[in-house]
Design a binder for these strands. Structure first.
Lengths: 219, 219
DNA sequence: CCTTTTTTGTACCATTTCGAAAGAAATTCC
DNA sequence: GGAATTTCTTTCGAAATGGTACAAAAAAGG
């Protein structure tokens, strides 16, 4: 961190920044997370980041820009977590549960009631009126879809899933399970119940494996 | 309607209302639908309903009350549609597709880009900070969950689904499919693609029927 | 016709919100 | 140490927002 600063910015000319852009963006995201885009004022964000509005404006542009950057920040974190969880080094069942457990940890982090997924919880609302947010939102969701699908195709090749299994459908179940968990977390469903839900979905998906004739018993 | 008015309100004392409360509430809901709770001003709602703010306040209380009433209005519509679609008079497969087709019609109604589900699209954001909205939101979602589950239990009794089928899991797939469609509609996914997604989910669910050993091919 | 009752419409108020301007502060370059 | 540069802090302003007060309007009751 310190090295990178020295490398990239060698010796900046004027007064040094009093904030770290990365952590400031993260704090701004946290501020948006609970109340959403419209429900969070720039003063709220200023308090959360410790910056004042002019500095915020100079660093990230206006409120809209700031939100879009926060969303990109969230997604890049999510992609990374997804990549690690679905690395393909463990059984499919285990890796899928890693995805859901990791998501639950994120959704139930923070102080008050669970905030669920930042993107689904806040960008869904804005997507209709703000094309940029809609694009960033849908782009991120598609990447997650693809991550599930890629992992399952690999599982099929490796013999973890039946050659007959419809990968597209199973990946869709994996994605929609993530989405329903994101929503339900935000509406107050207990973490344990959501984990139970995830286990059932994983059981269903992994039921389509060789050697099992009836994937219906998904205990 | 006219009769009911004469019955219930016989002869109201003062100046008659210039609006119909039911349609006004519906218009208010439509106003909230695109921009969400925080993103919609009382002026927006006043324009949408043709009422002015004092009348709005007298009729529905403050903005928060109005939104909660709009949400209840939306849910009651949804419950009714669900009840009709899952009446149990047609094959499960057909009735499930009725649910998704009906939902898609609703999600893609209106002028601009698709607005998806009013509840999921707008209440998810507010659920964290507003316990009343959270309660109304989760209550509605639970009723939809139960409607799916009840219908599937009936299907199991009727022999449409295998006795081995895990109804809870299948109902969860049905619900999460509805949720993912609601989200994706709002993020700009084409209606045809969402219908394809619904067909796949229905195929998966109804694959757990007697006489099929492998429900994996869900074309 | 006058009183009572209820709703409407205009106007207003206090607060919040977003954005910008202007000068002070901190650092590098020469 | 002074000039140049970048950021910070204070302050302002215009617009929007939620909510309310008050008089005019429209109906029924007597």
């Amino acid at each position: 961190m310190v090295q990178k600063r020295q490398d990239a910015e060698r010796k900046r000319r004027g007064r040094p920044r009093a904030y770290d852009p990365e952590t400031a963006l993260h704090r701004a995201m946290e501020a948006f997370w609970s109340a959403g885009y419209s429900g969070t004022s720039l003063d709220d964000i200023a308090s959360a980041t410790g910056m004042n509005r002019p500095s915020l404006y100079a660093a990230f542009g206006d409120k809209h820009d700031l939100y879009v950057k926060a969303l990109a920040h969230y997604w890049s974190q999510g992609f990374e977590a997804m990549r690690e969880a679905l690395a393909g080094k463990r059984p499919l069942r285990e890796e899928l549960m890693s995805v859901y457990d990791g998501s639950l940890s994120l959704y139930f982090s923070g102080e008050g009631p669970a905030r669920g997924c930042f993107a689904i919880g806040t960008a869904t609302t804005e997507a209709v009126l703000h094309p940029e947010i809609r694009a960033a939102f849908s782009g991120g969701l598609r990447i997650l879809d693809k991550a599930f699908e890629d992992r399952m195709r690999a599982a099929q090749v490796a013999g973890e899933l039946s050659p007959d299994a419809d990968i597209e459908t199973l990946a869709m179940v994996a994605s929609s399970t993530l989405h329903t968990i994101a929503i339900r977390a935000r509406m107050g469903t207990a973490r344990a119940e959501l984990r139970r839900l995830a286990r059932k979905a994983v059981g269903l998906i992994c039921g389509f494996s060789l050697g099992r004739t009836s994937p219906s018993s998904t205990a």
